[in-house]
């Protein structure tokens, strides 16, 4: 019991030390497809364990920003610096493609809006969860199997379904499987694009509850794109409000939702039906 406590303390101390330094620094980031189409002039700093929500209307540049951040699409301007687990800083877009891909399958994770884009639909749930581990060189079938069973349990899917194809899963289960598949490699930074989109309200609530637990437990930093302010309020520590390719307001979630300053934020917040 004591040793467990001591280790817990040690982990806590390590987390505290890690939290003192930023994880991601973004300066002047932009990519425009046309005037005010895309995103421009984005600056922010993300710390370990922090959840940043990006909200805004359709076409405001949220998803463009997310693909720039996650290394999927080179920006026209700006720099993204990421602090790796070994403490060295990496400029994401001046790094080699090999480094960027390694990052994407080890320290980063991407949860797609549509689980069909993020899962391999033709292979079993267990293979989906094991893929990142295999890409990292795990060559022990029993270990992969154990990880699969463990993660299915963690995302509240019956472990007996480990050999079933994802297409036999419901939408909510597919989304949870996608989360398991991404988190199995122990990432530090997770990008999520509308993770609860297309799910019914009760499934949404369960998924949000699960995500909130996992984010806290694993001390994940998350960049979350959503148009749903309720999701943002539940998960995000900080918010950035985007409109016509620009960030119009940024700050603590409660602050923005309870006391919006920019006229567009005010419009956005007031458009939500109050119970």
């Amino acid at each position: 019991m004591n040793s467990a406590h001591a280790m817990n303390d040690a982990t806590q101390a390590a987390r505290q030390a890690d939290r003192a330094q930023p994880l991601l620094q973004v300066r002047g980031l932009g990519k425009l497809y046309g005037p005010q189409k895309g995103c421009q002039g984005v600056d922010f700093t993300l710390y370990p364990g922090e959840v940043l929500g990006i909200v805004g209307e359709s076409g405001s540049g949220k998803s463009t920003l997310l693909s720039l951040l996650s290394g999927r699409c080179p920006p026209d301007a700006g720099v993204i610096d990421y602090r790796r687990r070994d403490g060295r800083w990496l400029d994401v877009y001046s790094a080699s493609e090999a480094e960027r891909r390694t990052l994407l399958r080890t320290e980063w994770a991407f949860v797609e809006q549509n689980p069909r884009d993020g899962l391999r639909m033709s292979v079993s749930a267990g293979a989906n969860i094991g893929e990142r581990l295999m890409a990292q060189g795990v060559r022990n079938y029993q270990a992969l199997r154990a990880a699969g069973l463990d993660w299915l349990a963690q995302v509240e899917i019956d472990p007996q379904r480990i050999d079933d194809l994802p297409r036999t899963f419901s939408g909510g289960m597919q989304q949870r499987l996608q989360i398991a598949r991404n988190l199995v490699s122990g990432p530090r930074l997770v990008f999520m694009d509308e993770p609860t989109g297309g799910l019914d309200v009760s499934v949404q609530a369960r998924l949000l509850d699960l995500m909130r637990g996992l984010v806290r437990e694993l001390d994940l930093a998350v960049v979350l794109v959503t148009h749903d302010l309720a999701v943002a309020r539940l998960l995000a520590d900080r918010l950035m409000v985007m409109r016509r390719s620009q960030v119009v307001e940024a700050g603590l979630t409660d602050q923005i939702l309870d006391d919006p300053q920019h006229p567009y934020s005010q419009l956005l917040v007031s458009s939500v039906l109050q119970p």
Binding site: R101, R105, R120, V123, S124, G126, A127, G130, E131, R132, M134, A135, Q136, R139, Y141, L144, R145, I162, D163
Partner: peptide, 15 residues
């Protein structure tokens, strides 16, 4: 980047 090659072998053993 050959991680996916083992996905097929994993699937064989699982099935």
């Amino acid at each position: 980047d050959y991680g996916v090659m083992h996905v097929k072998l994993y699937e064989d053993i699982a099935t």
